[in-house]
């Protein structure tokens, strides 16, 4: 722990990575199984945030701690916001056309 000042109480790296992995798995499960488009978008946000937790953890407690991890996570947060903005816009567009935001109503494309 150098330069940035030590933590108030030590958190083992493993627990933080486990938190990230848990969030990622919950997000993946939600994105693949949920029926409502908004919940699917929320699940994808969870997955992106799992990556953010990893980046911030590694930037502090990784093999070679450096600031680039934190900078990277700032970029990711911004990009994720843009992605979700477009996602919600598309969701509104489909809701106006179909009066529904359920995944199973996305069915005009036939095999």
């Amino acid at each position: 722990m150098t330069g940035l000042g030590g933590p108030l109480f030590p958190i083992p790296t493993g627990s933080l990575l486990a938190l990230g992995a848990l969030l990622f798995c919950i997000g993946l499960f939600g994105a693949l199984t949920r029926k409502n488009l908004i919940i699917v978008l929320v699940s994808i946000e969870l997955m992106l945030n799992a990556a953010n937790i990893n980046l911030v953890t590694f930037s502090r407690l990784g093999v070679n701690p450096s600031l680039s991890g934190q900078v990277f996570s700032l970029f990711t947060i911004t990009v994720a916001a843009a992605e979700i903005a477009v996602g919600l816009a598309l969701l509104l567009a489909i809701f106006r056309l179909r009066r529904s935001s359920e995944v199973q109503d996305l069915n005009v494309h036939k095999w």
Binding site: G20, F24, G27, I44, M47, L48, A50, A51, N54, L55, T57, F58, G62, V63, N64, P65, S66, S68, G69, F72, T76
Partner: peptide, 16 residues
């Protein structure tokens, strides 16, 4: 999200 999660591990074990 999957790509970024992978990148985060590579960053973690290299620091760059």
């Amino acid at each position: 999200a999957v790509l970024l999660y992978g990148i985060s591990f590579i960053y973690g074990i290299s620091g760059t």
